[in-house]
Nucleic acid binder design. Structure first.
Length: 104
DNA sequence: CCGTTGACGGCGA
DNA sequence: ATCGCCGCCAACG
């Protein structure tokens, strides 16, 4: 987990009530263009992890489908709504309003 | 060693 | 705005 440590560390910085995109996390972690590796790193997480994985969404503000099954997608949406983040008619979050700005 | 796969994203048609 | 193709790179068989 040597190289992904930067990724997990960056995800931990996302404040509650905010979300960040895979590409954004990659950039903040010093790995621009490696959005896919961020997704791969998230898939490797265990349930006891202190990483707020649910705050990571795709570039359109939506929840990406995963091989683990649709159940986790539901859980992610529930966790985000519990933090006050609303989903639009197309199941997407308004990144302009709820996207994480690292400089804040 | 090589081909496939995958929690993605950008660009062109 | 939507769709499809391609690039990125680590993990697996």
């Amino acid at each position: 987990m040597s190289r992904y440590g930067r990724i997990y560390d960056t995800v931990r910085k996302i404040p509650a009530g905010r979300v960040a995109t895979y590409g954004q996390i990659a950039m903040e972690a010093g790995l621009p263009g490696h959005a896919r590796q961020v997704g791969y790193a998230m898939a490797a997480l265990t349930e006891g992890s202190d990483v707020p994985w649910h705050r990571v969404v795709n570039a359109r503000g939506g929840i990406s489908a995963r091989s683990a099954g649709p159940a986790f997608e539901q859980i992610q949406r529930l966790l985000l709504e519990a933090e006050g983040i609303p989903f639009g008619p197309e199941d997407h979050i308004d990144l302009e309003r709820y996207g994480w700005d690292p400089s804040e």
